[in-house]
């Protein structure tokens, strides 16, 4: 067994050349490919990370915008609620005021109606009283009452101003003497008393009017001297009516 040093050296050279060749055509290209893929994947990861960061930022923006929208919506709702409450308060106040006005108007109307009703009742009462009085006084149409009314007539003629009394006496058409009935009074006595009171003797025409109830009145075309229960009752009614 011998060692061939030429062969040893040649084999060493062969192996070294093989190492160099494989380094050039195999190990470096494959390692470079691995490194390139790692670099590419790192770049993709970085890009994806950047995209994710951008997406997160956009998400944060969207979330902030959403929160802003929610806050704006809440603010709008609060404003609308406040406006609605104010409008409600205004409407309630207006309605209350209107109701109060209506209540006042209704009270006034009620008072007015009540007053009118009271006035009507009073008028009705007065009317009824006067009717009662008229019926009662109609039963007092006797000679005594007529004599009293004749005295009152004479007194009224005497109380007339002289010019009116003279105009009454000088009436060419004559004077109507109105009595409630012709039974309870003597026309001659009446006639004499009137002529005496006038101081003249105008023409007298006796007229019966039951509406007088009792009494004696003088009437011309332009003058009436009232002296009867009816005249008194009418005057009372006017007075009561004016008093109401």
């Amino acid at each position: 067994m011998t060692l061939d040093f030429w062969g040893l050296g040649l084999q060493a050279a062969n192996v070294l050349i093989l190492i160099w060749l494989l380094s050039r055509v195999f190990w470096r290209p494959v390692a470079a490919a691995i490194v390139a893929r790692q670099a590419a994947s790192d770049a993709m990861l970085d890009k994806a990370k950047a995209a994710q960061t951008a997406a997160d930022a956009e998400m944060a923006k969207a979330t902030a915008a959403h929160d802003g929208f929610a806050a704006e919506r809440a603010a709008l709702l609060d404003t609308a609620r406040a406006e609605a409450e104010a409008a409600t308060k205004t409407a309630l106040a207006s309605a209350a005021s209107r109701a109060e006005d209506m209540q006042i108007a209704a009270k006034a109307t009620i008072e007015h109606v009540r007053a009118e009703a009271a006035k009507a009742d009073a008028a009705q009462s007065v009317k009824l009283s006067l009717q009662i009085a008229a019926k009662l006084l109609a039963r007092l149409n006797g000679p005594i009452v007529q004599a009293a009314f004749l005295d009152l007539l004479v007194q009224a003629i005497a109380d007339l101003p002289p010019a009116e009394r003279a105009a009454l006496a000088a009436n060419a058409e004559g004077i109507e003497v109105v009595m409630a009935s012709a039974d309870s009074t003597d026309p001659k006595a009446v006639k004499a008393a009137i002529h005496k009171a006038l101081g003249a003797k105008p023409e007298l025409r006796f007229v019966t009017d039951p509406a007088l109830l009792a009494g004696i009145e003088l009437r011309t075309a332009h003058f009436t001297l009232r002296n009867s229960w009816r005249a008194d009752l009418t005057q009372i009614e006017k007075a009561v009516h004016n008093a109401a």
Binding site: M1, L3, D4, G7, L8, G9, L10, Q11, A12, N14, V15
Partner: peptide, 9 residues
């Protein structure tokens, strides 16, 4: 021997 000796060397 030569190859293995070369490798060892």
């Amino acid at each position: 021997l030569e190859t293995d000796a070369a490798l060892a060397l």
